[in-house]
Write a protein that binds this DNA or RNA. Structure first.
Lengths: 349, 349
DNA sequence: CTGAAAGCGCTTACAG
DNA sequence: CTGAAAGCGCTTACAG
C-alpha cells in the first residue's frame, strides 16, 4: 500500500519522520512526540499521526534516535560463565523481555583473568553508548566492573546468589534453598556419609550453596566429615579428581553432592574408573540441571535454576526505568531453584 | 593526559571529530579521511591527525557513522540451531574475527516453523541496517530467507554442508568426509552389522553425512541392511526411539552411527534400558563432538567440526569486501571434520 | 591532496 | 498543545 502512494517516496525507500509529518500535516516534532509517547499531544492529532505511521509503515531509525538521544538502543550481555547452555538460555530470556521494545542484544564474553578486562568493557560500553548491561555470575560479582559501570553512568542489572547491590540493580537467586533441598533428599534416602564437592572461591555461589547444604544437614543432625569436604573448580576434570579423592578414603561416602553438574558427571566418571556400579555403589546429586543431566546414565538428580526466566526478569528490571515503570513489584522477586529428582541418587544400602 | 588539555573539552566528555580537527588544524573532512583510511591524505598530515587522535583518545561514534553511512556497525548472527554449545562456540568464533574491527555482534534466534519468520528477519535487518549477517544451519539452508536478504541488499555468509551459494557467500563444511571416517573406523574394528540413525530431511547435513557414510561402507563391501536405516530428528528422544527400534530387531546391529551426538547418547540410553552393557554389547559413534561426548560413559567416539573456527572464517569472509580484501584465498577454504576416537566403539565380538 | 556546505533522521531546548 | 531552529557526530557530493 505504502508503495502505491506517490507521496510515500520511491518504493523500497523507507519512510522518514519527515514523510509522516508531511502526510499528517504536523511538524516533525509532533511526530516525535507521538513516537515517544509524550502526553502533550491532542488525542485526535495523535490518532491522525498514528494512522499515517501505519499507512507508511514507518519505523523510526534506531541509529538516528541513538545519535540524538546520545544513547543507543542496544543492551549488552557481558558474561564469563563457562557453560554454553547457561549463556544461551540467559540470552533467550533477555530476548524474550526485549521483544517489541526496539532494543537489540549485543553479546560480549569476557575473561576476568585478563589484565585488559576493564579497558575492554569500558571501550565496549562507551563506544556503543549502551542503554544498559546485564551480567550473570561470575562477572556480576566483580566489584571493579561495577565501579566502572557506575562511573560511566551505565545502567546495569546483576544476577547473583547474594544481594550485592540495591534491589533495582540486582536479581537474587536463592541457591541456598536449592542446596538445602538436595541435602534433605539425600538424608531422606538414608544417607549419612555424604560428601560435598565445592566450587572455586571466586564464585559466590559456591559459598552460598555450601552453606545451604551444610545448614540443612546440620538440622537433621548429620555433620560433614572434614575429609568429605572437597574443593573443586566447577569443571568436569575437578569432579573426576574429587571423585577419586573421596572414593579412595578408607570409609568412602555413600553419596556425593557437587555444586554443579559438570563436577557431578566428573564424579561419576571417577566412580566408573574405580570399577563402581552406579547408582548402586554411589549416589550423586548435582546443581544446574544442564541438558546433559537428563542424558547421562544414570540420569542425574540435580537442582535446577530457571535460567531463561532469570534472563527475562533481569531484562525487565533493566527496562523498568526506561519505561517509567515502578520497579517495586519486580524487586520483590527472588528466584527459587527446584530439585529435579531422577535416578542417580537412591536409597542408602 | 587528554583530561589535562583544556582544549580537549570537559573531563568525562568524549572527544569528537571537531576536537580532533581543531587540534590538528585541519578540516573535519580530513580527519574523516584518516579515520576511513583514504589514500588521499599526505603522509605528514595523516601522522599529525593520528597523533591528535591518540592524544585525545578519540574514537569515532558508531551511531553517527551509522547514520551518515546509512549502515550500522552491527553484524547479525541469525540462528535456529538447537544446540547451545554450537551457538556459543560459533558466536565466539565470530567475535574472534570481529575483534578490533569496531563491529559488534547482535544475536537473533529464529524459528523456521513460525509464520512470522520472514517479517521478523526483515524487521531486524532493515531496522538495524545491519552490515551483514551470518547464518549456520538450518536457517542457512532456507531459500526464502536468502531471497529476502538479497532483496534487502544485505551481505551475508551462510554455513552449510552443501555449496548452496557463490563461494564468497558460503562456508562449506565437508561433513561427508567426517562421516566416511566414522564408517572406516567401525569397519576397521570389524563391524559388519552397522546401523545408521539419520537426521530430519530439513537439514541438508543429514543427507550429506548419510551419503559419506554409506559410500565409504560400500567401498569396503559393506551394504546397509534397510532395516538398519532409521530416520531420527537430531534429538535425544529420537535417539532413544532409534535405539529401541534397532536393538529390538531379530538380528540387531553390533554398531550404530548416529548423525549427531544427542541421538548417539539417546541410543546409549535405550541400550541401557534394554539391559545391555556398553560398549561390550554395542558400539556407538556420534557426530558433533559436543562437550557432553567426553563426559558420558563410555566416552563417546565422535566426529568433530571446528565450530569456533567456522564462525571466525565465516565472519572473515563477510568482512573481506568491507576491508577491500581479495576473498579468493578465503574462498578456497573448506572445513574438514576429524574423528575423535574414545571408547564407545570397540572391536566387534 | 584539502575544505566549506549540506545532509543522514532523529531530538532537545526555546518559543508561542 | 504545537512548531521553527539548532544540534547530535559523522559522511557524501561538490569544489578547488
Amino acid at each position: 500500500m505504502a508503495q502505491d502512494d506517490p507521496r510515500s517516496g520511491k518504493p523500497g525507500k523507507r519512510a522518514t519522520i519527515n514523510d509522516v509529518a508531511r502526510e499528517a500535516k504536523v511538524s516533525k516534532k509532533t511526530v516525535s512526540r507521538v513516537i515517544n509517547q509524550s502526553p502533550f499531544v491532542k488525542a485526535d492529532t495523535r490518532e491522525r499521526v498514528n494512522a499515517v505511521i501505519e499507512a507508511l509503515g514507518f519505523t523510526p531509525d534506531p541509529q538516528a534516535r541513538a545519535l540524538a538521544f546520545r544513547r543507543s538502543l542496544l543492551v549488552g550481555l557481558i558474561y564469563d560463565n563457562p557453560s554454553p547452555t547457561y549463556v544461551v538460555n540467559m540470552q533467550q530470556g533477555v530476548l524474550d523481555a526485549l521483544k517489541g521494545s526496539g532494543l537489540e542484544l549485543v553479546v560480549h564474553p569476557c575473561n576476568r583473568d585478563m589484565p585488559t578486562l576493564l579497558d575492554d568493557i569500558r571501550g565496549f560500553v562507551e563506544r556503543q553508548r549502551l542503554s544498559g548491561v546485564i551480567m550473570p555470575p561470575s562477572v556480576s560479582e566483580d566489584q571493579r566492573v561495577i565501579a566502572l559501570l557506575r562511573e560511566m553512568d551505565c545502567p546495569y542489572v546483576r544476577i547473583a546468589s547474594v544481594a550485592l547491590d540495591e534491589p533495582e540493580a540486582m536479581l537474587v537467586t536463592n541457591d541456598g534453598m536449592g542446596a538445602a533441598e538436595a541435602a534433605n533428599h539425600l538424608a531422606s534416602l538414608g544417607h549419612r556419609r555424604i560428601g560435598l564437592v565445592r566450587g572455586p572461591d571466586l564464585f559466590r555461589s559456591s559459598a552460598v550453596r555450601s552453606k545451604g547444604f551444610l545448614d540443612a544437614l546440620a538440622e537433621r543432625g548429620i555433620p560433614l566429615d572434614p575429609s568429605y569436604d572437597f574443593k573443586g573448580a566447577y569443571t568436569f576434570e575437578s569432579g573426576v579428581a574429587a571423585g577419586h579423592a573421596l572414593l579412595a578414603l578408607e570409609t568412602p561416602p555413600t553419596a556425593i553432592f557437587t555444586l554443579n553438574d559438570d563436577m557431578a558427571i566428573g564424579v561419576m566418571q571417577a566412580a566408573r574408573e574405580r570399577g563402581l556400579e552406579l547408582p548402586r555403589d554411589l549416589s550423586v546429586v548435582g546443581f544446574d540441571d544442564l541438558p546433559m543431566a537428563a542424558r547421562v546414565w544414570p540420569n542425574l538428580t540435580s537442582v535446577r535454576l530457571p535460567i531463561r526466566d532469570m534472563g527475562r526478569m533481569a531484562a525487565e528490571k533493566l527496562l523498568a526505568p526506561m519505561r517509567g515503570l515502578d520497579p517495586t513489584g519486580l524487586n520483590q522477586a527472588e528466584v527459587r531453584p527446584t530439585l529435579i529428582v531422577r535416578n542417580s541418587a537412591i536409597k542408602a544400602a
